[in-house]
């Protein structure tokens, strides 16, 4: 890489990574306000976070919702991808944008639409939160599952069928194993999309069931204590560890790029 390009690359890395470093720094402050650079070093705000009932409760709720979202989105997205993959190109090109619309429609609109819809159905509760998150997460699963299907040999399904596998056995024994990498990475994105979701959650959450990002957001608006930075750092580290574990185990991103 020539010098100027290399410099630009590092500048971009810095732009992406420095804010995260700042959050970590801010959480270690000894002072009473959210500032960077930190005023003295201490772990007092990490201690404060660990006994902050509201934050911890939000975190538990978010983890629970994200897990349920993952468990629902993966099979739904997998079946949708199998369906789409079996359509002719024209029909598929028309259907994919529809089924993955939440990726392109502004989240605020999706959130507002869900609010109107769920109010009617009486779903402004944790069930509604899970369903709302599923709506915005399924497209990630569909996308990456479609990629792994398009990379696999299409005659495999025919080979299974002609040797006696019924349609369910073809899916179970051949198609799903072929999609494995796509489903794992799609599932990871679905989980993270739910864990980080704030826009849809603000519309649907009701007092008592407030997901973690919504708690963080209202804290930052009202009392910007450094414990917020500590909690954020915790989530960033958890997310990074999760990604690295899956990457190490399944070589996810390389298999998608192949």
């Amino acid at each position: 890489m020539p010098g100027p390009v290399r410099l630009l690359a590092w500048a971009l890395y810095a732009l992406i990574l420095l804010p995260i470093v700042m959050v970590l720094g801010a959480s270690l402050t000894a002072g009473g306000f959210l500032t960077f650079p930190p005023q003295g070093l201490s772990l007092r705000w990490w201690q404060a976070m660990l006994i902050d009932r509201e934050l911890l409760r939000g975190l538990m709720i978010s983890l629970r919702i994200a897990t349920l979202t993952l468990v629902i989105s993966v099979p739904v997205g997998a079946l949708a991808a199998i369906f789409l993959d079996r359509q002719n190109a024209r029909w598929r090109n028309a259907l994919v944008p529809v089924l993955t619309a939440p990726l392109s429609v502004p989240l605020v609109l999706t959130g507002f639409a869900l609010l109107v819809f769920f109010t009617r159905l009486g779903l402004l509760n944790e069930t509604g939160l899970v369903l709302g998150h599923v709506v915005v997460s399924v497209p990630y699963v569909i996308r990456s599952a479609l990629v792994s299907l398009s990379l696999s040999d299409r005659t495999l399904a025919r080979a299974a069928e002609v040797h006696g596998a019924n349609p369910a056995q073809v899916i179970w024994k051949v198609t799903l194993p072929m999609m494995r990498h796509g489903l794992i990475s799609g599932g990871l994105f679905a989980f993270l999309a739910s864990l980080n979701n704030i826009v849809v959650s603000v519309f649907i959450a009701k007092p008592g069931v407030i997901p973690f990002p919504v708690v963080l957001f209202s804290r930052m608006e009202n009392l910007a204590e450094p414990s917020v930075a500590a909690a954020s750092t915790l989530v960033i580290v958890l997310t990074a560890v999760l990604c690295m574990l899956l990457e190490w185990r399944y070589d996810l991103f390389r298999s998608l790029a192949r």
């Binding site: 040999d153 005659t155 495999l156 025919r158 080979a159 299974a160 069928e161 002609v162 040797h163 006696g164 596998a165 019924n166 349609p167 024994k173 051949v174 194993p177």
Partner: peptide
């Protein structure tokens, strides 16, 4: 799947 056939493919198509 009920025709009781065997088939060999150009791409091998092994699982």
């Amino acid at each position: 799947y009920r025709r009781g056939l065997g088939m060999v493919f150009q791409s091998h198509a092994l699982f």
